[in-house]
């Protein structure tokens, strides 16, 4: 997903956590959906996830990954957002020892990766401990 145009289309979610929420059952889907994957309803409306949540677990990733060679190791967190949705994203502005399960976290937009050939920089949300 590192072609500029394809990444551009993802901005509503990767910058703002926008997606489609089912009017019937309340389930949230990233980006645009036609049918609710939980209940099958076709009544979905655009919505945005809350910017805050609770840290469930985190992992320190030490295996380097394409596009992120220079910022390894990094932390990836499983966060339960305030609406009950689960989001997995990187953590920033903290050290692993600062983190405890059940602590409050919030989103912030940061640099995610650098494309190898084009040197384009991709941004998106990360979590940081709430102030």
């Amino acid at each position: 997903m590192s072609k500029p145009a394809s990444y551009w289309r993802l901005r509503p979610f990767v910058y703002r956590l926008e997606g489609s929420r089912c009017v019937k059952c309340g389930h949230f889907h990233p980006l645009v959906r036609k049918v609710c994957r939980r209940c099958g309803s076709k009544n979905l409306e655009r919505d945005r996830l809350p910017a805050t949540g609770i840290l469930r677990h985190f992992t320190v990733v030490s295996q380097a990954q394409q596009g992120m060679e220079k910022n390894t190791p990094f932390i990836v967190a499983w966060v339960e957002m305030d609406d009950g949705s689960k989001v997995v994203a990187q953590m920033t502005d903290c050290e692993p020892e600062d983190l405890k399960p059940a602590m409050k976290v919030e989103t912030v937009v940061r640099k995610i990766k650098v494309d190898g050939e084009s040197r384009l920089i991709f941004y998106g949300i990360k979590f940081r401990p709430s102030a």
Binding site: M1, Y7, L10, F13, V14, P30, L31, R56, H57, F58, T59, V61, Q63, A64, Q65, Q66, G67, M68, F74, V76, W78, V88, A89, Q90, I112, K113, F122, G124, I125, K126
Partner: peptide
């Protein structure tokens, strides 16, 4: 690592710099 992550939804997992390896660890 990036290749195995292609099994996960690229639109909102890989685009946030999350690999399948990280998901598996969690």
């Amino acid at each position: 690592v990036a290749l195995s992550s292609m099994e996960e939804p690229a639109e909102y997992i890989a685009s946030l710099g999350v690999s399948q390896l990280a998901e598996a660890a969690l």
